[in-house]
Amino acid sequence: MTMRLWFPASIVILWGGLALVSPLLPLNPHAIDLANILTPPGATTWLGYDDLGRSIADRLATGAQTSFIVALAVVFLGVTLGGLLGATSGYLSGWVDHIFVRIVDILLAFPGLLLAIALAAALGPGIENVIVALSLTGWVGYARLARAQVLSLKQADHVVAARAIGTSTWRILTRHLLPLLTAPLIVEASFGIAGAIIAEAGLSFLGLGVQPPEASWGSMIRDGTRYMLVAPHLVIIPGMTLMLVVLAANLLGDWLRDWLDIKDQVGKR
């Protein structure tokens, strides 16, 4: 069963590590070398070169950085903002909660990536706007989860006891409720990372994400589709990378969920 953890964990660590060290590496993701146009992967050419003679390995590494920054920022903003708002709303209940639920419902009324695409289109391209668009649409899931958890935890003995002895709302939220929320939020976040990676690549694929010459796996796939006939490696390499990382994040989420569930049961006994 260790395979279930080590395979995805090592890929995710590789991805994060690459993103973190890539600014320190001597990468030339924008260096155009016309003589190398569409060179296929090989022993001396690494992963080959793209339609402008840029190194695919270098662009893959900077693309990892792009996706890492976006995924981390989106998930962090989503978990903290969404978690806090959802928990507060669930705890306070009453009209605050009512309005909150309405807002969440409205945001959930937009299907899939649609709102993010529309937001990114209105805000204009660029990595910051991708983060803004994905966070604005992404926090809702965490908020809903946190709210539902708080609603059920509110009646838990230790919370009722804390309230009885007159502990402040803020203290109850931060000391008694949030710690219990972390586990489900972490599981949700690991799936959220997978979602954010795909969403960023999707926006870049549509030309709404990072702008050329900046590298993103999504824009690499889009550019690569034009040379599918003569240089399929341009599509296959970034696509496989993207898929592996997303798969790893999903597997990790699955594993985390199972693992945390088991721990829960152990705790109850």
Binding site: I198, G202, I221, M228, N250, L251
Partner: peptide, 18 residues
């Protein structure tokens, strides 16, 4: 199923065309 969830449609599309 997990693989299907992880394949982005903008990559699966071109591969299917190919």
């Amino acid at each position: 199923a997990l693989l299907g969830m992880s394949i982005p449609n903008f990559w699966l599309g071109p591969i299917l065309i190919l």
